[in-house]
Amino acid sequence: MGLTLPSPFRLGAKLDRLVARFARVCPLTPDGQARVLPRAIYILPTRAGLVFAGILLLMLLGSLNYQNNLGLLFTFLTTAVVVVSMHHAWFNLLGLTLSARAGRPVFAGNRAVFDLQVVAETRKRRPDLRLCVGDQVVPLDLEPGHDARTSLGLPTRRRGLHALGRVTLETYYPLGLFRCWCYLETAASVLVYPRPADRAPDPVPAAGGLVDGRGVQDPGAEDFVGLRRYRPGDSPRQLDWKAYGRGRGLQVKQFGRDLPDRLWLDWDLLPPADTETRLTWLARQVVDAALTEQAFALRIPGRAIAPGHGETQMHRCLAVLARFGQGALSAQPEDRL
C-alpha cells in the first residue's frame, strides 16, 4: 500500500506557528500560575486523524452506496467514538494549572533549568500530557489527586534574563487522532551570565604593590613562598628533606606567585574590544578572582560593585555583567558607588 503518514501526529510546523501567533494564551493568575481556560484550548486533527477521517468517509460512501446498514452502523459507531474522543482530549487539558520556577543562574551555553509543576484541580486522571518548550517535549501522566513535576533544561546562547515564556501543554489522548493544546504563560526566568572567556587580560591590582604572603600557590612558579605540613598526596619532590633531617617532621616547600589582595576589575582598563568580548573577559576575571579568594571590585559603565570576595561577590558581579545594557541596572541601588 502506498499510503504513508509523513508525521504521525502534527499538522506541520508552519500551521503551528501561524496558530501560535494569533492564539489565546492562558494568562498568569496573581499567584504566578497559569490555569488552562476553556476558551484557550485548541484542537485540530493530527495527520493520523485526517487519514482516519478519509477512511471513515470511504466507509460511509461504500455503505450508503450498497445500502448496507450494518456498514453504516459500524461507520457511525466509529465516527461517534472519534467525536467523543475529541471531547475527552479537551477535558484532559481543562482546569490544569502550570507553575514554573526558575533554577539557579547559569553561564551562557549551559542549560537553563526550570522546574515545572502541573496540578489538576479535579481528581480525575490526566494521562498522556506533554509539556513542550522549544524543541523539548516532556511527557507527563497525572494520577488522581497528585501533581506532576518535571525539570526542563533549555539551551542558552546569550547572556541576560532567559524567560521560560510561553509553554505549550498538549495531549494526544485518547486515540491520537486529535492534537489538543493550549499556550500557558509563565513568569519564571533564569539569569544567564556571560560565558567567561577562555583567557582574559590580567586584572589590575587595586592599591598597587604585592602583599604580605597571601598569594596563590602555583607549583609551576619559581618563588619560594613558605613551608606547610605534609599532606598525603603531595609530590615527594617538593618535600623539604633538610628540615626532615633536622627532625622537624615532614614539610612541603610551597612555591607560588604573589597576588594582589584586592583587584579592580575595570571595564575601562581592558584592551579595546566590543562589548560582549569585554563582558566575557570580565566574567573570566570575576570567576578567577573569586576562586583564588581575592577581594575584588567591579566597575563597568554606569555601575560599580564595591569590593568584596567569595561566592556572593562573584554572583553579584556576574549578575551585573549579565544584565549589562539590558535596563535592569537600577534594581539594586545600594550597590551604586
Binding site: M1, L3, T4, L5, P8, A48, V51, F52, I55, L56, L58, M59, G62, S63, Y66, N68, L70, G71, F74, T75, T78, G176
Partner: peptide
C-alpha cells in the same frame, strides 16, 4: 496505526 485504521474499512466489507 494505518493497518489498524484500514482494519475497520476491511471489517465492513465483510458485511457484503
Amino acid at each position: 496505526r494505518l493497518a489498524a485504521m484500514l482494519f475497520s474499512f476491511w471489517l465492513i466489507s465483510h458485511f457484503f
